[in-house]
Each structure stands twice: as structure tokens, then as C-alpha cells.
């Protein structure tokens, strides 16, 4: 499965357009991490726990999008976009979407 945020793949032709596919996940970190993060809010700097959490959720969202694309017989997802939003305090949603296509 080829995933790219370009609109066309150099050197290959889109044979069929299969529509939008998406994957999303909502995740939170356990309280210990939140407390550690609130200490970091005093000193400043990177919140590694949250970076890790968002990376994991991004991978999961991409896996879900890929599964959806596979189910409709695509072999590539083009023009992929990411979006993050915080749904509740301490939880964030990761949303990935793109166009499923069949490449020749």
C-alpha cells in the first residue's frame, strides 16, 4: 500500500478513483503522565509522553485508513492529510484522510 500526500505519483498513472478513506482514533494518557506534563508546564520544554502518545495514535489512525482502503480494493492512498483536535481535557483525536486509488 502506497501512502503519499502528493496528488499524483511520479511515473505512475491512476487507473481508478475509489473515493475518500479515513481513519481516526481518540486517545488519552494515564493520569501519571498528565501529572508529569503539568510539572513540565512550569519548566517548559517538550512533553515527550504526549509526543509519543500522538505518534502512536497517528500510526493507529493510518492503519485504520489503510484497512478501509484495502477493503475497497485500493493499492494506494494519495493526498493524505492529518488533523488533530482535543475532544476533552486530556484526550485528543487524531484524524487521517485521503483518496483511495488504484494505480496502474
Amino acid at each position: 500500500m502506497l501512502i503519499s500526500n502528493l496528488e499524483v505519483v511520479p511515473g505512475r498513472r491512476v487507473k481508478e478513483h475509489l473515493g475518500l478513506v479515513q481513519g481516526s482514533t481518540v486517545r488519552a494518557k494515564h493520569v501519571g503522565r498528565d501529572i508529569a506534563a503539568s510539572f513540565k508546564n512550569v519548566f517548559g520544554g517538550e512533553l515527550q509522553g504526549y509526543t509519543e502518545l500522538l505518534n502512536d495514535s497517528r500510526e493507529e489512525a493510518m492503519a485504520r485508513m489503510q484497512a478501509q482502503a484495502q477493503a475497497i480494493g485500493a493499492n494506494a492512498i494519495l493526498n493524505v492529510r492529518f488533523s488533530t483536535s482535543s475532544v476533552a481535557q486530556g484526550a485528543s483525536e487524531l484524524f487521517v484522510y485521503g483518496t483511495a486509488v488504484e494505480l496502474a
Binding site: V8, P10, G11, G45, T51, L54
Partner: peptide
Amino acid sequence: QRLPPPQLPAPTTALVVGSVVISADYFKR
């Protein structure tokens, strides 16, 4: 730019992502 120039030899492509979560300190806030 949205598209690579067409004169490039057909390469393989891969999605690359980098992310960071950062916070301001108390003084800055």
C-alpha cells in the same frame, strides 16, 4: 510545492511525518 518537477527520474515515494508537543514555562505564560 504540491508536485515534484516532471524531469525527475521516477522515484519511490514515502510519507514522512515529524511531530512534537511542546509547552511554555510558567514565566513565559
